[in-house]
Amino acid sequence: MKSPAFLQRVWHWLHLFEEGLLLFIFIGMMGIAVAQIILRNVFHTGIEWSDVFLRSAVLWIALIGAMIASRTGNHVQIDVVRRFMPEWLQRWGARLTSAATMVVAALFSWHGVRFAYLEWQDQTMAIGIVPSWVVVSIIPFGFAMIAIRYLILTVNPKPMVNE
């Protein structure tokens, strides 16, 4: 099944955006962590928000990484039984589990929106001047993207990778 050219463009830019964000967060994470060590030992000072930033970055990496892994449905799964099933059953099993995963991820995304809204009402700050709802918002966004990926995998299942 081929998607129209316009959609493919959007998809292409989305992939670039995800990867750029992942790179940015990782480099920021390593940079801040190393800078903190140098600042403390050489200049006897530090970045006040570094620890909170680093801990938030772990959450972002978790979700962006999982989003990218969902492109090909490359998540950890128990595939013991599936391996011994006939091919047609494997394909329909894959459709079924992808659809279920999509529903679960979409539900998670919706409740993530509600959580982010709660944090927005609180107006608490997470990292310096960055409010915590901004940090939290990766949860609904990430799961929405995962849901979309599994919707595509439901319509168009990937063949099972055998060694």
Partner: peptide
């Protein structure tokens, strides 16, 4: 058992 990702199973 049909191969739903572990994260989705635990979430569900």
């Amino acid at each position: 058992i049909l191969g739903m990702p572990v994260f989705a199973v635990l979430t569900a």
